[in-house]
Design a protein around this nucleic acid. Sequence first.
DNA 1: GCCACATATGCCGATATAGGTATATGATGG
DNA 2: CCATCATATACCTATATCGGCATATGTGGC
Lengths: 117, 117
Amino acid sequence: MARAATTADAFNAVAEPRRRQILEVLAAGERPVNDLVAALGLAQPLVSKHLRVLRAVGLVRAREAGRQRVYEVNGEPLKPIHDWVKAFEKSWSHRFERLDVVLEEMKAMEERGHGSE
Amino acid sequence: MARAATTADAFNAVAEPRRRQILEVLAAGERPVNDLVAALGLAQPLVSKHLRVLRAVGLVRAREAGRQRVYEVNGEPLKPIHDWVKAFEKSWSHRFERLDVVLEEMKAMEERGHGSE
DNA sequence: GCCACATATGCCGATATAGGTATATGATGG
DNA sequence: CCATCATATACCTATATCGGCATATGTGGC
């Protein structure tokens, strides 16, 4: 057996740095393929192939617009990754043992009108 | 070029379901290899090879104990994944604007003693 | 010293990848 | 209709994987 298909999983799809880049660009707003080609500096067929993988896992959606195909992110398939990784968060964030405390902190931060990051 | 090495990244290392399983088991506490073999029902060389990959990325650490080798999780290399994925969280959690609601949910989940997967 | 135990490594086969180049599909405009 | 733009697909090569089996390394006990 070889490695699991890249289209098997969001885990596998997102393991490719280029695919992550594509998602990052699309996070700023939907884009036709050529924009992605320009933004990433990759060969057009490469981008199309990566998009194919992302589409297969549901991470992007295509919309037809004349002769262009406009792609848009759909982050939902990332949720399993988020949930799985989150279970290990305490491993690097030691203040995380007291979850209640952390929640208070976050809440306070939010109320102070301070966004994310 | 083939796919990036599994040892290139936590992203790649964790794309393998078995490797995730290993980390899940180890999350409950350090274990010698044979325990993992029993817990996962895999062939011993397989487990050793997966551990090798996880070690290469720093996701596990080995401690010598007599003729056993006790492995332990180190979640820190997962942080980049967490951070990256988190940026897309709003994409699937539309109620994310109401942070307080989310916090309640998290608290509830935690109190229910929710494991991984 | 020798044998059983615990783990790691070597070699093999099948597979599917990423990237490249050339080409097919498909829509638009003249 | 034909040429052009936008995107997708086909074919190719090199590579590294996962899993299986056999074996090496290394430790402890008798």
